[in-house]
């Protein structure tokens, strides 16, 4: 066991971890921030996506020890202090961008990372960026619409493929 210290959602946290402890296990098990989900555990599905030093990362494929000193943001850390939703979260609600909701934390964190780098993505860029986030309910159309809306763009033109 070794001590690891990092900043999660603006708060300094630390804990004892094994070498093999994954970042997602630290976030869920030690910090009890269970909004970050474990879907596949093989870095395919993206349900565990968080931001590490501002970058989208699959927290099932990074060790907690590797996040020593890092700034980590989880789904719990993006809402306002009063619980108000971000534009991406609100758009997911408005455009029914979720059904069962299991993939949603990862989808929202992925979309948030995309819009930070690319504030007005095209539909194709959104679909390309979401390659690593799997949703088995929605067929992605409403997720793409929500991200178009969150970026202030017209959603009417999105083709129902």
């Amino acid at each position: 066991m070794a001590k690891v210290q990092m900043t999660v959602n603006g708060k300094s946290v630390s804990g004892e971890v094994e070498g093999r402890t994954l970042l997602v296990e630290f976030i869920r098990g030690k910090l009890e921030l269970t909004g970050t989900h474990i879907g596949c555990d093989t870095s395919q599905c993206g349900a565990c996506l968080v931001h590490v030093n501002g970058q989208a990362v699959k927290s099932c494929t990074m060790f907690a020890a590797e996040a020593e000193g890092a700034e980590v943001t989880t789904i719990e850390g993006i809402t306002g202090k009063d619980g108000s939703l971000t534009a991406v979260q609100q758009a997911f609600q408005d455009y029914h961008g979720l059904q069962c909701g299991f993939c949603t934390p990862g989808m929202v964190m992925s979309a948030t990372a995309l819009l930070k780098d690319n504030p007005k993505p095209s539909e194709a860029e959104i679909r390309e960026y979401l390659k690593g986030n799997i949703c088995r309910c929605t067929g992605y159309h409403n997720i793409v619409k929500a991200i178009m809306a969150a970026s202030g763009q017209d959603v009417g033109a999105i083709a129902a493929e």
């Binding site: 870095s43 970058q55 989208a56 990362v57």
Partner: peptide
């Protein structure tokens, strides 16, 4: 390569 999150690591 892979997807955006994989490319970040």
């Amino acid at each position: 390569i892979g997807d955006p999150a994989v490319r970040n690591r």
